[in-house]
């Protein structure tokens, strides 16, 4: 369970997050939705402890995120960036096992965990010996998910994880990623600007606009019971094939 309590943040006089009040239930997938500049990525980094709030606090279960608790809390969360954030000097296996090795896991423990996870993300074992620069976009994201899930954290955070992929790969990876989340049974928070992705993944969707939470609820609540005109505007702005009607 993650709780965000009256959080404010500004950079150089510009307010980026304004009175954010949210909580996220365990084992569900939550979407932070919004246009660029809405503050969604800042909020995600703040949950990871990479940015400190000016006011308010963030809680992971009963523990407060502070600069001094960040290291230990970070080990209870996994983080996946848009292009994976894999270290180019380490091969896939070294990337995945890096933290476990510094924590002193035995090589047998590490191997067992790799075997478990590689099943979940359906990767070929051969991929483990390759370096990030030798991996396709889809492979990078699977490796990044393995790394994020390696220490068996309760929480996985993803910042536009599919944003850099081709549409075809993106669509097939969306399905896989959702089934991975179902298998892992973690609290997942994912940042996206894509309505379709929000609808597809989210048990809850939080729409942010200029640093404020406009609406927090299920996707169908946003669709059918918008609390603000911008909610409808944002959802309708992303046209689908249906909207094009007789033009096709």
């Amino acid at each position: 369970m993650i709780r965000i309590d009256s959080v404010y943040k500004s950079f150089n006089q510009t307010v980026v997050l304004n009175d954010i009040q949210l909580s996220f239930a365990p084992k569900k997938t939550h979407i932070l939705l919004g246009a660029s500049g809405s503050g969604k990525s800042t909020l995600l980094k703040m949950i990871m402890g990479l940015i400190s709030p000016d006011q308010g606090s963030i809680w992971l279960d009963q523990e407060k995120m502070t600069p001094s608790s960040q290291r230990l809390l970070a080990q209870k969360m996994g983080y996946v960036l848009q292009d994976g954030g894999l270290f180019p000097h380490l091969n896939a296996r070294q990337n995945i096992a890096l933290m476990a090795e510094t924590l002193g896991w035995s090589s047998q423990q590490i191997q067992n965990r790799i075997d478990e996870l590689i099943e979940v993300v359906s990767l070929d074992h051969l991929v483990l010996g390759k370096f990030p620069r030798q991996l396709s976009g889809g492979e990078k994201q699977r490796v990044a998910v393995m790394r994020a899930a390696f220490l068996n954290p309760n929480v996985i955070l993803l910042d536009e994880p599919l944003g850099a992929l081709d549409p075809l790969i993106r669509s097939s990876l969306q399905k896989e990623l959702r089934s991975i989340f179902e298998k892992l049974q973690k609290l997942v928070i994912m940042v996206t600007h894509d309505i379709g992705e929000a609808a597809f993944f989210g048990h809850t969707v939080t729409l942010l606009y200029q640093g404020r939470v406009l609406q927090h609820g299920s996707f169908s609540e946003l669709l059918h019971a918008p609390t603000h005109p911008y909610v409808t505007e944002f959802i309708q702005a992303q046209r689908t094939l249906h909207d094009l009607g007789d033009k096709i």
Binding site: G49, R71, A74, Y79, L81, F87, L98, M99, T102, R147
Partner: peptide, 26 residues
Amino acid sequence: RLLESARSLGLSDWQRIRLIELPLAS
């Protein structure tokens, strides 16, 4: 982003220098 990635893993300052930053700057 790689530095963020390293902090998100929970590596200590010294571990980040030794395992991530020095090899990348090598």
